[in-house]
């Protein structure tokens, strides 16, 4: 493949990977604090809707972007209420959250069907955009993609360098010990859940404000589930999340480009590619470095004690 085709492909990989990246990072934060939230798809859609709604209301895409995060947080707080306060099953609660979020976004979004919003357009970063190869791939995107460049290191920094990150990990790995050390596991899990939901909501807002700039139902089209899978693919590490999201976006963009280039292959087989690649990549990663596990207390509720 020639370089003229490769660069747009990689740029497309970055763009289509971005919503998934936000969602994956969010789920990663949540899971590392010990909460499994399978409601990512619902949070993406609520984020997309709230972002769109606020942007239309105020005319400010940035307010919309933040509102996307807040919308998803509101939805996720239900998950917190059910699982952290009332100790309900995290799997069912997360799935219920998806069902509820998809329904709510659809229901509330009805008056906005087919409406357009003035969201984020491409903005070439001065200086960086002219770098050979890297410029067109990474620095001629929209502002929200640049935000995602900040989000990943931020999450990495949180877990690698701060005591808050350490505490979050403790709540996810060994809540009993965390409690013994004087940490409030419930507060930590609330933080992990809401911070993660905020990130996922940003991913949703990215879909309705930057990637496409109109409202229809089911805008996320299953990307939330991909994010759930990618967290595992990333072995709960931010670096892996970046790799996974861009890889997934890249393979998707690649199969579309293969068709556009006139490859005469059945599209059903091409569409299997991204999913098959994910499994293969996971096998390869497993063979290479041995087992890296989930947070030990992932999905396990912490009961109050006397």
């Amino acid at each position: 493949m020639s370089i003229e085709l490769l660069i747009p492909l990689l740029a497309a990989a970055v763009q289509s990977g971005t919503p998934v990246l936000f969602a994956t990072l969010g789920e990663l934060v949540t899971e590392r604090s010990g909460t499994l939230n399978l409601g990512v798809e619902g949070m993406l859609l609520m984020g997309a809707f709230s972002g769109f709604f606020v942007c239309i209301l105020t005319g400010s895409p940035w307010l919309g972007f933040v509102a996307g995060g807040v919308g998803a947080m509101l939805l996720a707080s239900l998950h917190g209420l059910v699982t952290i306060v009332f100790l309900g099953n995290q799997v069912v609660s997360g799935l219920a959250l998806t069902i509820l979020g998809v329904g709510l976004a659809d229901f509330l979004g009805q008056p906005f069907i087919g409406q357009k919003v003035a969201g984020f357009s491409k903005y070439a970063l001065p200086g960086l955009a002219d770098l050979p190869a890297l410029g067109p791939i990474f620095f001629r995107q929209d502002a929200l993609v640049y935000c995602s460049y900040l989000a990943a290191p931020l999450v990495w920094f949180l877990f690698a360098r701060t005591s808050l990150g350490l505490a979050l990990d403790a709540a996810g790995e060994n809540p009993k010990a965390a409690k013994a050390a004087g940490l409030s596991v419930a507060s930590l899990r609330w933080f992990g859940l809401l911070a993660g939901a905020f990130l996922a909501g940003l991913g949703g807002a990215y879909l309705s404000l930057a990637y496409t700039q109109f409202w229809t139902s089911n805008l996320s089209a299953g990307r939330g589930w991909i994010a759930v899978a990618l967290v595992i693919f990333a072995f709960w590490r931010p670096r892996g999340a970046v790799l996974g999201a861009y890889l997934f976006g890249g393979v998707m963009a690649f199969q579309l480009r293969l068709q556009a280039a006139g490859a005469n292959l059945p599209s059903s087989l091409l569409l299997m590619l991204p999913y098959a690649m994910t499994i293969l990549a996971l096998i390869a990663a497993n063979l290479r470095k041995g087992r890296a596990g989930a947070p030990a207390a992932l999905g396990v509720n912490v009961e109050p004690e006397e």
Partner: peptide, 27 residues
């Protein structure tokens, strides 16, 4: 005329991505 199948009726982001793939192919 170059054709790209998306295998979906409503996935705005993928549809847009498919259009961009076609544009990159020179359409």
């Amino acid at each position: 005329v170059r054709v790209v199948w998306t295998k979906t009726w409503y996935d705005p982001a993928t549809e847009k991505e498919a259009a961009k793939a076609l544009l990159d192919a020179g359409c």
